[in-house]
Design a protein around this nucleic acid. Sequence first.
RNA 1: GCCCAUGUGGCGGAAUUGGUAGACGCAGCAGACUCAAAAUCUGCCAUUCGCAAGGGUGUGAAGGUUCGAUUCCUUUCGUGGGCACCA
Length: 974
Amino acid sequence: MEYRFNEIEKKWQDQWKANKVYKVSNESAKPKYYVLDMFPYPSGAGLHVGHPLGYIASDIYSRYKRLKGFNVLHPMGFDSFGLPAEQYALETGQHPADTTEKNIATFKSQLNKIGFCYDWDREVRTSDPQYYKWTQWIFLQLFNSYFCNTEKKALPIVLLIKKYETKGAMPKTGEAIPGKHFTAAEWKGYSKKQQEDILMKRRLAFCAYGEVNWCAALGTVLANDEVVNGVSERGGHPVEKRKMRQWYLRITAYADRLLEGLEKVEFSDSMKEMQRNWIGKSQGAEMDFAIKNSAEKLRVYTTRPDTIFGVDFMVVAPEHELVNKITTADQKEEIEKYLGYVKSRSERERIAEVKQITGCFTGAYAINTFNGKEIPIWIGEYVLAGYGTGAIMAVPCGDQRDFAFAKHFNIPITNIIGNHFNGADANATKEAVLENSGFLNGFLMKDAINIAVNKIEELGIGIRKINYRMRDAGFSRQRYWGEPFPIIWSDGIAIPLDAAELALELPHVDKYGPGPEGEGPLANIDEWTNLPGDARRETSTMPGYAGSSWYFLRYMDPHNITTFCDRKASDYWNQVDIYIGGTEHAVGHLLYSRLWTKILFDLGYIGYEEPFKKLVNQGMIQGSSRFVYRLKMSILFREDYDFFKENNVDVFISDNIRLNFLKDPVNFKFLPYLKTKFPDLDYSYFEGIPNSVEISPDLMIPLHVDVKMVDGFELDQDAFKKWRSEFENAILITDVDGKFICKGDVEKMSKSKFNTENPNDLVDKYGADTFRMYEMFLGPVEMSKPWDTKGIEGVHRFLRKLWRLFNDELKGKIWTEDKATDAELKIVHRTIKKIEEDTEKFSFNTAVSAFMICINDLFDVKCHKKEVLEKILILLVPYAPHIAEELWHQLGNDGSILDAKYPEFNPALLVESSKEYPISINGKVRANIKLALDLDQAAVEQIVLQNEVIQKWLEGKAPKKIIYVKNKMVNVVI
RNA sequence: GCCCAUGUGGCGGAAUUGGUAGACGCAGCAGACUCAAAAUCUGCCAUUCGCAAGGGUGUGAAGGUUCGAUUCCUUUCGUGGGCACCA
């Protein structure tokens, strides 16, 4: 009888389904354990081989915990709102709800094929109105709450209103500032709109103005992902910054608690570090500088007030409100020009490209209070409006970016750190003794920080201030496929829907294009958007992370129609015991879900404020991507830009030609090259373009193409033209042999990169058990690796070999009921120990190899005994459940192996009395000697020195020292 | 650029707290079985010098600490991920 994995896996999957073996109850005498995967976005490409890496790991762990006697919750669902479905809708006209439904069906069938132990009765989908009803409900809780700075927690906004009505909002000390403080009487005198505007500034979910990527040509706001090299990915249109009203979550209020919470969770240090860096807490001072000939003051934030005497210039963010006010007449034109340039730059480009130094002098000067020095005020793109005060004091001797800026614009540099500054590079030390620093002279910098802040406060020109790099989280998208906001606008006031009116369902649309003025598609649906009177619905939708910020709670009580999750259920399942997912979510999703959990905790809806007790990061299975290079039309073919645009013509070049360019980009003339190399091409498109047009590397934009259209590196040109409507008329400039070669690269596997691989093919060929074990065998779960199927045969051979311990092709059943020998038991118990340890620490690759070693050993001793094999099968259940169940039944067992009792390891069987010690001379192993484990140093030295090989190396000399580490090694130093 | 991770044979990778580098597997080579193939089994398999015995070198690179470093420290290079509207 041979190992027919297809039949076996089908048989048991059907049986398990029929018997509902994965059904999980909220009531059990067993201890609970909650194993959670980051749920997938159901992309149109289907599940790819990268997804199961984490899912297999969590499935193994869940099954292991179950065998160990836990009531295990291990659910799965779908993060089914998102941009890709909408983009697909734009391209094909299919409704996102339909494509999403279809994609989920594909995902589920793929997941089931691999044999995961999910309780599908608990499935959640973020795009299901029954689910997003509660996402909207939680949004309302956020909207109706504020962060109380005294209690450091969220409280219902009605309490704040009550406070305003009774006490107003007056400063604890000092004078009330008009516009900021008010009495109860004043509050009552405010109009409804005025009151609401004040409250909006405190709500946890609030509206404010923020910048978006605006693409005028497409009439829409673009995601960062849709902007490539400063132009839109679709069509290559220019993109610029534009201010729009947006929703935000006040995550900054929780910055400290998010930091403190990290102490209580088991995340890897690097993960915690990433979150800490994202939050970016810094201590420093905020101070005001007078501006020469102006009543305005420039407020800067600095973490290094000790360097105040080294300030040689100020840099203000180009968006800073002061820029208009202080720019002098003769600098106006230049500043305007610079502002135009900055508008086209993404934030990333602005901070990343340090080699390219840009800036512009405003003509204004700030006055350094401490020495009266006049400090030129510049604007520069490396200063961002969103961080600190949007203005910095630049100390070129101490900060590299300031230094580069000063050098570039020939601003004289003041040295305040003596010979710590070499004139060639800035030195950010805190250990230098200050010079040229007035009252700070002679102080060590790190001590001077405090002295400087005290002085600043004493003079009343500034305050000690803690700052966070983190900004409030943008929470609205000008898109269709997301949760609608349960908000109606009337007279400029946001009115929340009543909870009873939820879910506010997404209306059906026929067109997915943007609404007027960059609003989302919902703005196009008059009857939905415009309500009686002046009332108008919010037309933005929530971002992708809304639904994923609380889904782990819904799994606990997925069908509840009266609340998002019954308190009894959330108390029972409590925190997620182990959460498995990729590091790419290190800051986004993980911070947001931690925030939501804290808020729900503050408001008393759940009993814990950290959602995930322990986090395991799975690595990424990388894909092998293919690119084509598009020539940037707008620049290269200026004269004929309109023609190309109207006719929807894009030009792509084969990678070989591109490489030719790169060899000599200066002298390479594009058109002459083409005409000599490809005399037969139709050049009518290029008529009128001067031959001298040059192409530089940055005029060639890489574009992912579907790896399925590429054979090795050669593009299927017809398939490419049919791939997207906009490529229908594309000109493909091929190599001389007519082949179009793509560039290859290894990167994240994702639909948007068109480099996904489907696990189904492998499951069909080798079976789910082989696939599961192979993915684990690839390497440590937390490590990233490019996808490769090279080693899968080995894992498959292992399972077949296991099978042959039970069955012989000719003889049939060969297992016996004989009593196991000590040697056989030793193999089993060594394996139990190893598998248990490895499973506990998520070292699944070494566990798989331990299984292999075990089976090889059992083969060597020709062991076919039920007593031995049975234990191995139970160990194997988490890894290869189908074959384990099948063989379990072949051994004559009745019940399912899924609920067997995990074998216990007996240490007595593994005790050794001696060990083969490596004996080194000066750290190099020269001999091996078997020594009893209970020997002392003197006895070991004696034996070792008598050894022939050691004597040879000693050449008659006495050793300087002999190091003996029990159970490890012996080192003879000569 | 900044933050985080990572770098070991032809390949994936292994190596408690610093203690025999290369487990396990893939590929490759040689052989057995077979009319043949598949399957299976046996042996070899970092590199270099050597007939061999045995030696030298070797964990991205360069230094350092140590009796001993893949492991700890410093510097540096490459790669992957994230950088706020992809999920």
